[in-house]
Write a protein that binds this DNA or RNA. Structure first.
Lengths: 122, 122
DNA sequence: TCCCTCCGATTACAGATGTAGTCTTATATG
DNA sequence: CATATAAGACTACATCTGTAATCGGAGGGA
């Protein structure tokens, strides 16, 4: 049911992934001010996310409390897979290789990833 | 100038990243048949990619030869960075951690990445 | 020479997206 | 009690995308 979360919708999900449930007004307060959104825009995003099943809402007096229905990790997994499929032939290693070539890995990143991989090995 | 390459446009870029220059008809032949596109659709994509500066074309008699202006690696870098910024707080290590947790790394991936990282270290 | 065909250019049109504005209704306040 | 507000519901509208169809001109065959 949750087809695709657009970039704008993602900003709303981000807020609710950090803290939920929240009212529409509370979500609007927490949206990255850099977007310069009016609260109407936030309400539109909430309505669209509800319609596509990414959020649930429960009544709280005469307003709603919104809560995510998709987990951030699930969404991240889907998006990562799409990127890897589209750009790296479906395999993760070329993505890491790519990041490495582009110097997008700090020494700290490298250390962390090595530790991770070590832990993964049988 | 190359703002965003949509999913459909990406299918066309993929063909031209593999082989260029090509005529519109040649691109159409090479598009993944799974898309079921008419050649009109391919022409539309070519026109849009031209307009947004992702392709160049040169005349060849009464038709054009198209070639990419953005490199696949550059595009991959931009898209990877966007994903990492949006979903992983701008750091690559959590992405790899995430792939690991989701069992999206095969033993071969792990071996390859380890070798890569080893080579990166001073 | 005249028409058919193949190409690019232009136009179409519905659904998604960004970005709100207006309508309706149920409280809260004077 | 009457009315101003504030929430959600519905509507708006331009742009981007997917997916073509149509128009107009240049070459090639009859």
């Amino acid at each position: 049911m949750v087809d695709r979360i657009s970039d704008g919708e993602h900003a709303v999900m981000d807020v609710l992934w950090d803290e939920a449930p929240l009212t529409a007004a509370e979500v609007a307060e927490r949206i990255d001010p850099a977007r310069g959104w009016s609260d109407r825009t936030v309400k539109t995003m909430l309505a669209r996310l509800l319609a596509k099943g990414a959020l649930a809402h429960e009544e709280d007096g005469r307003r709603y409390l919104y809560r995510p229905l998709v987990a951030r990790a699930d969404y991240a997994a889907r998006e990562s897979r799409k990127l890897i499929d589209r750009l790296f032939g479906g395999r993760a290693a070329p993505l890491v290789a790519h990041l490495a070539e582009q110097d997008q890995l700090s020494p700290q990143d490298i250390a962390e990833i090595e530790a991770l991989l070590k832990a993964l090995k049988p």
